[in-house]
C-alpha cells in the first residue's frame, strides 16, 4: 500500500477512536461543573498522531474529533471548552516533544496539565470570578493520571505502528 493511503487510513482510524473515547467520557459523571470539561482520554489518539505523523496531522485529528463530538453529543459551550483546552495542549505537547527531554509519558502529562489550564482560564474569563479555581487541584490530579496512562500507551504502540506505516 502507498504510504499516503496508509496515513489517511490511520488518521481516519484515530479520529473514530478519539470520538469513541470522547463519548465514553460523557458517560462518566461530571464532578466538575464546567460544561464540556473532560479528563482527556481522547488525547491518546491525538498524541499517537503527533508521534507518528506530526503536529499538523495531530491537530486535524483533534479538530475533527471536537467538531464531531459537539455535533453528536455536545453543545456550543462544550465545543468552545474542548477547543480552548485542546489547542493549548497540542501546542505544548509539540514544543515539549521537540526538546527531546521527555518520553511520551512526560509530553502527555504536560499536555494534560495545559489542557486543564486552558479550560479553567476560559471559565475564569467568562465568569469574571475566580471561584471555579477551587476545582483546579482535584482535576489536575485526575488529569495527570490520565495523562500518564495515555503517554504509557503511546510509548507502547508508537514504534510498532511506525514500522507498520513505513513498511
Amino acid at each position: 500500500m502507498k504510504k499516503n493511503v496508509k496515513k489517511i487510513a490511520f488518521l481516519g482510524l484515530f479520529v473514530s477512536f478519539a470520538l469513541i473515547l470522547s463519548f465514553l467520557e460523557t458517560l462518566i459523571p461530571n464532578m466538575i461543573p464546567i460544561p464540556g470539561f473532560k479528563l482527556g482520554l481522547a488525547n491518546f489518539a491525538v498524541l499517537l498522531a503527533l508521534y507518528l505523523f506530526g503536529i499538523k496531522e495531530a491537530a486535524i485529528v483533534d479538530l475533527l474529533r471536537i467538531v464531531l463530538a459537539a455535533l453528536l453529543f455536545g453543545s456550543m459551550f462544550s465545543f468552545l471548552y474542548a477547543l480552548s483546552g485542546a489547542s493549548l495542549a497540542i501546542l505544548i505537547e509539540s514544543l515539549i516533544k521537540k526538546t527531546d527531554k521527555f518520553s511520551p509519558v512526560g509530553v502527555s502529562i504536560f499536555g494534560a496539565v495545559f489542557h486543564n489550564l486552558g479550560q479553567f482560564i476560559l471559565a475564569v474569563i467568562i465568569m469574571r470570578s475566580f471561584g471555579v479555581l477551587y476545582y483546579l487541584p482535584f482535576t489536575l490530579v485526575f488529569c495527570v493520571l490520565t495523562g500518564f496512562i495515555n503517554g504509557f500507551l503511546v510509548n507502547l504502540l508508537n514504534k510498532r505502528l511506525a514500522k507498520l506505516i513505513n513498511e
Binding site: 521527555f102 518520553s103 512526560g106 502529562i109 503517554g151
Partner: peptide, 13 residues
C-alpha cells in the same frame, strides 16, 4: 520513561 518524566510526576504530586 526518562528520568525527566519521573521528576515531573514527583514534582506535580
Amino acid at each position: 520513561m526518562k528520568k525527566n518524566d519521573v521528576f515531573l510526576i514527583i514534582i506535580i504530586l
